[in-house]
Amino acid sequence: MKLTIHHLYANMMNLYGDRGNVISIKKRCEWRGIAVEVVDVDLGEKIRPTGCDIFLFGGGQDREQALLVEDLSGSKGADLRAIADDGGVILGVCGGYQLMGHSYETPEGDRLSGVGIFDLRTEPRKPHEERLIGNVIVRVGLPDGSERELVGFENHGGRTRLGDVEPLGYVVLGHGNNGEDGTEGARRDNCYGTYLHGSLLPKNPWFTDLLIESAIRRVDDSFKLEPLDDSAEQAAFAAAVERARGRR
C-alpha cells in the first residue's frame, strides 16, 4: 500500500509555507512505515489518482491564481469535482480553498470561476476593510460528537460566504471566513477548506492523521493509524494557542 500526495500547482501555489503540510503528511506516514509518494501536479498536467490519495491545493498570489483558473476550467476541474463526489480526500488552503468554491473575485473586479466543490463564493474586501491577518483558533466538531481545536495563522483579503455547506469549524479567536459570521473554512465528505495556511498540519497532528486515515480507509476500511509521540507538536500547539490569546 502506498499513499500518494498530489500537490496541486506546487510551483505556483506555494505561499506561506504550504510545503509544511506536505512534509507533515509525508513524515507521519514514513514514521509508521507507510510508503508515500509526493507528486507535483502543474499547469497542463493531468491528475492521476491511485485510489489512496490526498490532494493538497495551496495558496498563491492573485496573479498566479488567475493563471490557474483556465487550467481548472477544463477536465482537471471536472476530475477534482468527481474525486470530491467520490469521497476523495482534498485539503484546500487559502487561495486553493477559495478556488474550491464557485467563484473568487479579485480586488481588481475580475471574477474567477472556481471548481465548485463547496457551495461558497469569495468577494474582495471593500476599500474600507482591512486584510484579515493574525493567529486563529478554530473549534471543530467531529462526527463522534467530540470537539477538537485547530491553531494557525490567517492572512487574506477575500471574504468567503458559505452557501449550503458546513463550515470546517467555528472561530474561537481570529477572523475566519469573513470576520463576521464566526465560521471558518468549509467541509464536505472528505474535503476540507481553510484559511489557516502553511504550517496548519504540523501543529495540528490529529488533523493530519484524520486526512491520512481517511485516505487509507478508501482502500482498507478497517485501517487504524498507530499513535506517534506528539509531545513536540503538542508543545507547539500549546505555545501557539497561548500566543494567540496574548499570554506569551
Binding site: 507538536e233 508543545a235 507547539a236
Partner: peptide, 15 residues
C-alpha cells in the same frame, strides 16, 4: 524565542 516550539517541530520533521 517566542516560537521556539515551532522551530523544534520544524527540525523534528527534517529529522
Amino acid at each position: 524565542g517566542i516560537r521556539a516550539e515551532d522551530m523544534t517541530v520544524r527540525l523534528k520533521y527534517a529529522e
